[in-house]
Design a binder for these strands. Sequence first.
DNA 1: AACCTGGCTTGATCCAGATCAAGCGTATTT
DNA 2: AAATACGCTTGATCTGGATCAAGCCAGGTT
Lengths: 193, 193
Amino acid sequence: MFEVLISHIQQKVSLSDTDKIRLQEFFVPKKLRKKQYLLQEGDICKNLAFISKGLLRTYNVDEQGNEHMSVFGWEGWWLSDFNSFLSGEPAVFNIDAIEDTEALLISKANYEAITVAIPVMDRYFRILYQNSIVTKERRLMSSITDTAEEKYLRLSESSPQIIERLPQNLVASYLGIAPETLSRIKKNIASRK
Amino acid sequence: MFEVLISHIQQKVSLSDTDKIRLQEFFVPKKLRKKQYLLQEGDICKNLAFISKGLLRTYNVDEQGNEHMSVFGWEGWWLSDFNSFLSGEPAVFNIDAIEDTEALLISKANYEAITVAIPVMDRYFRILYQNSIVTKERRLMSSITDTAEEKYLRLSESSPQIIERLPQNLVASYLGIAPETLSRIKKNIASRK
DNA sequence: AACCTGGCTTGATCCAGATCAAGCGTATTT
DNA sequence: AAATACGCTTGATCTGGATCAAGCCAGGTT
């Protein structure tokens, strides 16, 4: 389980051998079956989850009962309701497993502690968050600026894995469009070439 | 100029007196007149800008010539085309001054260097970015989930300063709606109470 | 083998919000 | 003080994509 995490960290910063050992103390492994919740709306999000295997989704549900995908995460991704985790407010997001999943959980206290014990983790998270900001900024501008078809094409460019790995109705929700619309868009694109 | 920056940093981490002095070496002050560009689309974004006074906007322009607001920043905010700054790719955003502005610029090299010279800056930026992610996540979900009126009401809640300080057409662009629509929404809300 | 269940498609209709257009007041420029 | 520009409003019209509805296919269950 930890190899995936350690190699992910070492892509961004370098860890000593003792760091690699110590680091493991801060995490708790957790297995999730398909459809199982990691977090439910209204609960306090107690952990950040690093996914070492499997596939999760983060989403909220509006008053009409429609789900809106926020983030998908698989091997090498971190997930949480970040606001709830940081502030202690109730979560607005649900997180559940689309495939059987293995994750490593780190609590708020351990998240604070690990950056003290292993200072380079501040830098690791800083770099992780930098990249996350760029991704979210792109998705936001796409959401504001692009037509439905442009949103789909941009996602195909930037995150083909999402399109390959997830059912089409969840992709549509991630793009903020109706599943029927996505179906028609794909048909149009296919017929054009 | 530096007092604003230093007090902003000290809200998140603590700095020694020598850190406060050394820190200044890494920044270059820059004044901007109203309408002046800090960054133009296609250029490489060489700096992060900390705004000590004034008001800037980050936006892009689509093929039809419409502007789409990405971020507004005033005293105590950081702005850049983050992707361009980090990757060295050409900027997709423009940044210009809505009011006369004083900023402190830090280059990529100095951004790397300052976290080495003053390690607590890694933590400062990590915390800054954490908060930025939460904000962007909220705005993204609002953009995907909410009606035009809900978007406006949510912004009134979360960032009343934006509504107070910026002309209505820029607020509309920030929300991803037409200025006429925003005008009508405000009229409706006013007439309802 | 019959029966669900969930994901996908296709057609018909509807509507929130965009676009187009005109006029108005206030601020800025000359 | 005239001229121009800019932001805002209001009305009329249009449209991209949502919603509603029905049927299809593949996998999984009993």
